[in-house]
Each structure stands twice: as C-alpha cells, then as structure tokens.
Design a binder for these strands. Structure first.
Lengths: 231, 231
DNA sequence: CGAATAGTGTCTCTAAGACAATATCGT
DNA sequence: ACGATATTGTCTTAGAGACACTATTCG
C-alpha cells in the first residue's frame, strides 16, 4: 500500500529516471539509438537516452518528452519494459529507472551526441558508419542488461502483439515483404515467405487489423507487391 | 540515461513504494490477501499490502521484506508486474509504485488488519467468511487497476511459465489433479482432465521440470493419484 | 528466356479440444 | 455393483514448417 507516511526515519526519496530504448528497422536490421555520455560516470561510454522524471508527469509522459527532446520523434509506440532498482546501478547515488521501449519507423538524431547501432546476434552492437563492434557489456550503467531484456521482450511479444506495425516504414502504406523484414530483424533469423504470408493473412488481414489499399508497390527487378495499411 | 544531475530546478524526488499482490489457491479458488486501511486517504478501504522503499534495498527486496512483515510469508515467488506512476494516483503527494506478484502456496495473516478475498469473474471480490461482495473499483488508490493487470498477466503467462508450481500446495508433493485446480483457479474456467494430463506430461514431466515421486495420494471416494515434485 | 521476388498450394507433424474408454478407489 | 475420480486412448481440426509451384517484373 502507498500509505504509512509517518515512520521512524524520514522516508527515502530516490531519484527516478526513465531509460528509453528507441528502436527502428532499416536495411533489414534492427537498430537502436544510443547517446554518448559526456560526463562522469561512464564518460565517453554509450548509453540509453533518458532523463529524470518531473514532478507533474507520468513515467510514460517523461519517456515521450525525453524521446522528443533528444530525437524529435513524437509518434513512437511507447511501452513500459521493466523497472530497474538495484541499489548500486548508479555509482553516484540511488536511481530507480523505469525503462520504456520506443518503437518508431524512423529515428532522427544529432550526429555529435547520438548514433544508431545495429543489433547483432550474441550481445554485439555495430555502430552505423563503422567503428569497432561494441559488446552490450560496454554500455554505461546496467544498460546492457536492459537491452537484453528489451530484445527478449520484443521477440516474445512479436507474434501476439502489433509491435511490428510500429516499426514498419509507413503504417499506412507497406507491403507484406516489408513487414516480413521487420519480423526477421527482430528475430534475427529468416522466415519462409510462404508461411509468413499465410500467417499474416490469418492474423492481420482476416481480422481486419490491416487492409489492402488496392495499390501496389514496385521495385526494379522485382514483382509488384500489394500495399496494406494498418487500421 | 540516468545522469544529468545539474539542471535548472532541483531534481524531483518522489516517494517510491512497492505494492504486493499476494495470491494463493485454496478450495479451487484464487485468493488475494488485502489489508484494511486505518488512516486517510481511503480509510476503511481494502488495499494491497506494501510499503515504501528503503535506501539500501532493491524493489524486489522491499517487496519480500514487506510481505514477510505483513504475512510472515518468506517463500513466495516474487515477480515484477508493472510500475504505476500516474501523478494523481495518491491524493496526498506523488508516489511511484512498483507492483509485484507474490505467489505462494499459503498465506497467513493477522485477522484484524488483513483478509483473504476470492477473485470472482467480472471484477468482483468476495471476502473470506462472508460480507458483501466488493468491486475492484472499491479498492484504495488505483489498486483495482493493478489487480486487473495482475490477473491478465497471470492468465497470459500461465502456460509458458512455472507460476502454477508456485501456487500448488506443496511443490515437493502434489498431484496433477491438484495442479489442474491451480490452472482452473487462475483461468476461472474448467479444463478437460484428459487433455490437461497429456499437456502436463509433455510440458512438465517429459522435460523433467516435475518428476513422479513414486508415491500416491489417496482421498476417500476417489482413485489414488500419482504424486510429483518440482525440480 | 532467365533471375528475382510475390504469392499460392501441398504435405507432414504437432498441438488442442471433444469425448470415449479403462483403472482404482470407497461404500 | 455403483459412483466418483484418475489416467489413457481416439478422433477431428488447426497451426507450423518445409518446400514445390505459379505469377509478375526486369533485363
């Protein structure tokens, strides 16, 4: 219960932050936006974007605000991931952090302070545009752990949620092959196109979650693909 | 990220509490332990047990500590549910609450301040030993919402997790019909015994998560049932 | 035509659910 | 023997995965 104000010692009031995991899919790869820390601790390390909770906003609002401040992204799908509260997770002082998935079709950012990283299988990150591959373990604070939890959550929820639709390039105009690329990026394994079609028809099209626009997408050297939009 | 200590205004430091959802199964019914509030706000209302986080403990440790203080239960399966952070969820001042499922074979408690409630379908609670049925909406704070989230989570995770084993009377000595009662209590719907047996054999016994003890349980008027223990 | 991709069809295997059949109990 | 429950078996149907097949486009 959230009562019992009067106790022996004054009540502990920790700092509360939100950590954001901004994901997108590009070139068939799942990518996450990280920011470079410019102060101690973990100065120079890459970290999840985020910030402290303000007194009048919910955690989800804080996540949305920080995401917009740092990337300009406003239309992301926000979803609470987990709350991390180990006492030593921040070496300076106690900080409770509420982590949020932020799934968007595209993430923009300031090149000096932030960068997109490809998620590689086996706890590796590869920086966009080169550089040495990074281990999850190299991230600041416990952010490597948080990232692992996030990836497992996305994989687990992929088929019985609509998170893939939040990551597709344009929810109002996409093809099933595009959607398949989102699935493959999250699972980091290829899917059989025929079986994927059958399943998407049953799980999305027949229930009316996505509908064909009647138009088609064409790419050189490929057959045209039907366009759909999410409802 | 969990940095940026220096900002314009002093950093907001909310109270952080844990709310605990202590569940057990008894007489084929899912039951939750609630406590009666003895002070404002919501004085006289039933609420989830819980309390404020101390400076040196993680949220899970706080949940375990509070559960033990209020019920004496030590062996519960604790699992983070969700973090509730709406600014107005506590009318006095801002309180962030991290909710935990606490699944135990049996819950003891102090009869004056606490009581077990049966979960009924359709957002109703029935107090052990009589009294008017209670709507989830009558609980203090947002605890009715939290309870709904908890029930959905338990139902969703039932088949692909081991939460049922945490609720069975004795993890070292139980029968499959007993386990079926746990499943039925959580789902609040009856299951076909034959199909349940086949599934448990495949999902628990064959993978070795539970093993037959070789002994049998007998009840008058019934056929003996094989005993199992969780590994 | 041939390569690549979109989309459909077929086959096998496993799982779920409905339900029958059998095996043990207590009375 | 009868009623209740434990446990096994049978049948049907749906979904997953492997894979063949057709259709469309570009060169």
């Amino acid at each position: 219960m959230t009562q019992e104000k009067q106790e022996a010692s004054p009540l502990f009031r920790p700092l509360v932050s939100v950590d954001i995991l901004p994901f997108m899919v590009e070139e068939k790869k799942l990518k996450i936006l990280l920011v470079k820390r410019n102060r101690s601790p973990f100065e120079g390390s890459w970290a999840l974007p985020g910030g402290f909770l303000l007194s009048a906003e919910s955690a989800e609002e804080a996540a949305g605000r920080k995401l917009k401040e740092e990337t300009g992204v406003e239309n992301a799908h926000l979803e609470q991931l987990y709350t991390f509260s180990a006492p030593e997770r921040d070496p300076r002082e106690r900080v409770i952090s509420i982590a949020y998935l932020a799934l968007a079709p595209k993430l923009s950012f300031d090149a000096k302070e932030a960068s997109l990283f490809q998620i590689q299988p086996e706890d590796r990150l590869e920086k966009e545009g080169g550089g040495l591959p990074l281990s999850f373990h190299d991230l600041a604070f416990d952010h490597g752990d948080i990232l692992r939890v996030a990836l497992m959550r996305m994989q687990g929820k992929l088929y019985y949620s609509d998170i893939a639709l939040s990551l597709v390039g344009d929810r109002a105009r996409f093809t099933l092959p595009e959607l398949q690329e989102v699935y493959e990026a999250i699972l980091s394994s290829p899917l059989d196109a025929g079986n994927f079609y059958r399943r998407m028809k049953r799980d999305y099209v027949t229930p009316g979650k996505i509908v064909p626009t009647g138009e088609f997408q064409k790419y050189p050297g490929k057959k045209r693909a039907a366009l759909y939009r999410a409802t």
